[in-house]
Computed example of a mutant assay.
Amino acid sequence: MDAFDDTPADRAPMPDPVKIAAPWMDERSHDMLREFFRVGLKSRCVLVEAPRAQAILIDLDRGDATRRLHDARLRWPNVPIIELSVNHTNEALFVRKPLRARGMARALLSVRRRLRLSDDPVAESVCTAPPAAPVAASVAALEDKSTSQLVGLAQDVPPDDPGAWARAWYAPDDFLQGHLQRAAAQADADGRAVALSGVWGTWIVPPGNGVVRVDMADRALRSLCVVGLSDSEVRLRPADVDAAADGTRRDALLWKVALWTARGRVPHGTPLDQPVYLKHWPDLNALAPLPHALRIAALWLDHPQPLLELAGHLGLPQRNVFAVYTACAALGLAGPARRAADVLVGAPELTPSGMQALIARLSGRLGLGPTAESAI
């Protein structure tokens, strides 16, 4: 051994990472893959251009997958192809979406065997590591009255029985919520306030997050939220007066009206088993507080994921997660994920300490203080 070599004699050199190309993915997907490879797979693979690749990654759920598979086999006949899909294929090199570290690590080990590369103990450790236990939630058996008014008391729907999911949905357009959201959208589009009239009188709904004067107590408004209102019972028109100088901010009104209407459900058309996104977190300081909201946001914010999976991951009743989604959607901050990159990489598996770190970071960003919410 060289006199200047201080590497322990019993430590084998680390094998080179597997070079992977994803020629038909966009730049955003490439960025997410690079971060996933670096963190989730401990840099045991790297993203490269196709001519240098030792494996080709193809998303079967986007574009013409059959043509891309054919083209890849013609252009790189000796390069293994890793197939990504939400549905299982018969290929040995298949990885289910959204990507998880263990599934991708297994594919890396298969690539190394096919190419007769040396074993990679780090990839093997990722592959065999037990999944992190779900972050435990301390949920009271009976929630207090104020909480139940915001998230309802609905029981969970069975994740494996889509036929039973109907009770998790409701139609906002049939209630005050839908009319209020239309008034807000019209005000934003026209750049001027809209008068929303009905049995409650007339509210002047401003563009942006201006003030709405609501001359009724919360108890009466809460009751109104669950009463069906047809289009013939509500009138929208351009307002001939300015918005009120004092009252309730529009976002705060939409937030609580959505919660009181939904009672722990989500709008019709919301997929329960497909990823949904959170664009950014609203101003919690100005909105009705929701139980476990920070824990939900901490895991959801940068990782679009299915609502059922999010609730299961956190060990929370589904109604808590559904309520947060519905309130955020009412403000235009949440919705079904449409971009390829949004469903490519799954959320990380978090230990309680990891969740606490995420909550602390989010609390600091929102100015809520270091003890805004516990991780358990």
Rank of each mutant, 00 (worst) to 15 (best):
A50H: 10
H70Y: 13
L344R: 13
K42G: 04
A329R: 09
V227S: 05
A136G: 06
A141F: 11
V95Q: 06
E233S: 15
R249Y: 09
P370E: 14
I359P: 01
A22P: 00
D231T: 07
S29R: 15
L350N: 11
K145A: 13
V18L: 04
P282K: 07
L93M: 05
I58Q: 05
T128M: 06
A189R: 15
I296Y: 07
A55P: 02
A357V: 10
A105N: 14
P352K: 12
D64A: 12
S29P: 00
A92Y: 02
D246C: 08
G367I: 00
P282S: 03
V39E: 09
M1Q: 11
P121M: 00
A243D: 03
A22F: 11
V226H: 04
Q181T: 02
D160N: 00
G354E: 05
L284S: 02
Q356K: 12
L108R: 08
P158Q: 04
D161C: 02
K279T: 12
Q186D: 08
L272M: 06
T270W: 09
S148C: 09
A341R: 08
R365H: 12
V18Q: 03
R100C: 05
L331K: 08
S118T: 08
V139N: 00
L221Y: 02
M25A: 11
T248H: 02
M1A: 13
V135W: 13
S363E: 06
D302P: 00
V241S: 07
G103H: 10
D190R: 07
P131Q: 12
R219P: 00
D242L: 09
V205G: 02
L368A: 11
G332M: 15
D6S: 10
A164W: 00
A136Q: 07
D156F: 14
I296G: 05
Q54N: 11
G210D: 05
V321Y: 05
D6Y: 13
P131C: 04
G346D: 08
Q149M: 03
A341W: 15
S110K: 12
P15H: 05
P306W: 15
L84W: 09
G367S: 11
R250Q: 06
W76Y: 15
E349Q: 13
G354C: 02
E309V: 03
P159C: 03
P238A: 15
R361A: 14
D173C: 03
I20L: 12
L314S: 07
V214H: 09
E233W: 01
V321K: 05
